[in-house]
């Protein structure tokens, strides 16, 4: 659920999150956000601080009286006092605008995993190809290979949007967000290792290269 008074951000954030397979509800009535949130009972709330009627701090405090819903505070104020205040009032994370969407998505994912145990034992599938995130293993028709952290992350990105072309820059960006500051050459090495492992289990043609554009499954 997104609580945000700026219509553009509300709309675009909804599009973005829906692209990543989250279902999103929004509201443009800020009189009783708390009541609305409690009635809808979402898995997670993205909460802006500057809102009409009541500010985000108030909403955060009120929600915490009734519920343990994970809350990420999203705000354009970025002083330490704001951060401290949000966390003191029971928010789980604090993100400043304009946000890096990769970081926002990562925070949403980790918070959901922590709150609902969704991450453990998660397996992504594409045809007969399966990617076990928990064990860091890729398998195809009974054959399997272990993956390094970077290889797993790269495959995870490709599995999350099957069929779409993902550019090298986007892959690098995603890797950087996990503290792996790889450069062009390292990525090329990683890609060829993945290709080799896929070939060993008989899925050599699963990974396609679009010259000048990127990779896709």
């Amino acid at each position: 659920m997104i609580v945000e008074d700026d219509a553009t951000i509300r709309k675009e954030l909804k599009i973005l999150l829906e692209k990543y397979k989250y279902s999103v509800i929004t509201t443009n009535d800020f009189e009783d956000v708390v009541g609305f949130a409690l009635a809808e009972n979402p898995h997670l709330i993205l909460l802006d601080i500057n809102l009409p009627c009541y500010d985000g701090y108030y909403i955060c405090r009120e929600l915490r009286k009734h519920s343990k819903i994970p809350i990420i505070v999203v705000t354009s104020r970025n002083s330490d006092t704001d951060e401290l205040m949000s966390l003191n009032l029971g928010a789980d994370h604090f993100v400043t605008k304009p946000y890096n969407t990769q970081i926002l998505l990562a925070k949403i994912e980790s918070l959901l995993e922590r709150a609902y145990d969704a991450g453990t034992g998660k397996t992504l599938r594409y045809g007969d190809l399966a990617l076990d995130i928990g064990k860091s293993v890729v398998s195809f028709k009974g054959e399997s290979r272990e993956l390094t952290k970077n290889e797993l992350r790269i495959l995870q990105i490709l599995f999350e949007s099957p069929g779409d072309i993902v550019s090298r820059d986007d892959i690098m960006n995603a890797l950087w967000q996990t503290d792996a500051f790889v450069d062009d050459n390292t990525l090329t090495v990683n890609m060829s290792r993945i290709r080799k492992k896929l070939a060993e289990i008989g899925a050599g043609d699963a990974l396609k290269t679009k010259r000048g554009l990127g990779y896709s499954l």
Binding site: D6, T8, I9, I15, S76, K97, P98, T101, D169
Partner: peptide, 21 residues
């Protein structure tokens, strides 16, 4: 600065969704 961050955030999301690097 705080005011302008909202439209920048909006524009960035639009760019992100339109994949306009």
């Amino acid at each position: 600065v705080h005011e302008i961050k909202t439209p920048i955030a909006g524009a960035k999301l639009i760019g992100e969704n339109a994949q306009n690097a």
